[in-house]
């Protein structure tokens, strides 16, 4: 169910103010929207409060230097250029980290961290973010990697896929990972909704160009589903018919409604705090 959100909370105000910082960040990566409103700036033109960018190889080698890495899973499948895994990458990841570190006392690496599902180093990062899974086509190696990751205790956040066709594709891939596990709804009384913020409704978060109608397909309503292990522990949280990633990425945009980005950050904080404690 899509429920309008018209509240003014301290978080609203905070997200709005953070948007100013995020705007500067957005400029640094040359997004089209940002380019229309501000001159293009490279990273060296302003003092970046973030920590050093280490590079993918160094991050894997020194994993542990930070307690938390916002890790994006790379997988095989359709999509433009690098593939669907890279949608919104890396701006969404960087902006999400800027904001989430202001909201939560999270000692996190400040930069994006893409790791392949096939990569043994994936296990060094117990939480991964995976989006646009409607176009994924996992290789056998990735299937094995994802299965082992989740069975060992890794937590997967899935986001930004819409409609029955994409769901079926995602489900088909998950059947290859866990043939016998079912995907069930995560109701609002689940502790993930109160791990940090108290969330009492599930909102459909639209993509940046779709804020006027939110849904990307007819009859698509937002759902939060999950997959549990044999001991009843949540190991995958699936945000279906919603696009949290765009809300994180475009929070600084005046055209992007604040209530959606606020909700997206609330849920993001909850998912991280929950995953790191349960």
């Amino acid at each position: 169910m899509i429920l309008p959100m018209r509240r003014s909370t301290p978080l609203h105000n905070f997200v709005a103010s953070v948007a100013v910082l995020a705007a500067a960040t957005a400029c640094a990566f040359g997004s089209e929207l940002a380019a229309q409103q501000a001159p293009v700036m490279d990273r060296s033109m302003f003092s970046d409060p973030r920590g050093p960018y280490l590079g993918e190889a160094e991050v894997k080698r020194t994993a542990g230097r930070f307690p938390f890495y916002w890790t994006r899973a790379m997988y095989s499948g359709g999509g433009f250029r690098r593939g669907s895994w890279a949608v919104d990458f890396p701006k969404s990841d960087q902006q999400f980290l800027i904001v989430i570190k202001r909201l939560v006392r999270l000692n996190a690496y400040d930069w994006e961290n893409p790791v392949g599902l096939w990569d043994p180093d994936l296990r060094k990062f117990p939480l991964i973010y995976m989006l646009e899974v409607g176009g994924m086509y996992l290789t056998d190696e990735e299937v094995v990697g994802l299965r082992g990751y989740m069975e060992a205790g890794g937590f997967v956040i899935v986001d930004d896929f819409w409609g029955g066709r994409q769901w079926d594709n995602f489900l088909w891939n998950m059947r290859r990972v866990f043939p016998d596990r079912t995907i069930v709804d995560i109701d609002l009384d689940h502790p993930v909704y109160s791990a940090y913020y108290n969330i009492d409704e599930v909102i459909q978060v639209p993509a940046i160009g779709n804020t006027y109608r939110t849904a990307e397909c007819a009859g698509c309503y937002p759902q939060v589903k999950g997959m549990y292990d044999d001991d009843g522990r949540l190991m995958m949280m699936i945000n279906f018919n919603t696009d949290l990633g765009d809300a994180w990425e475009w929070a600084e945009q005046p055209s992007y409604p604040l209530e959606y980005s606020t909700y997206a950050y609330q849920l993001g904080a909850n998912m991280i705090v929950y995953a790191m404690s349960h």
């Binding site: 307690p67 006392r105 205790g153 001991d231 790191m276």
Partner: peptide
């Protein structure tokens, strides 16, 4: 624990049963 850390999750899991 002073901050979210993975030790929390995995220690709790280890002794949950």
């Amino acid at each position: 624990e002073g901050e979210p850390r993975w030790e929390v999750k995995f220690m709790r899991r280890a002794v949950a049963d």
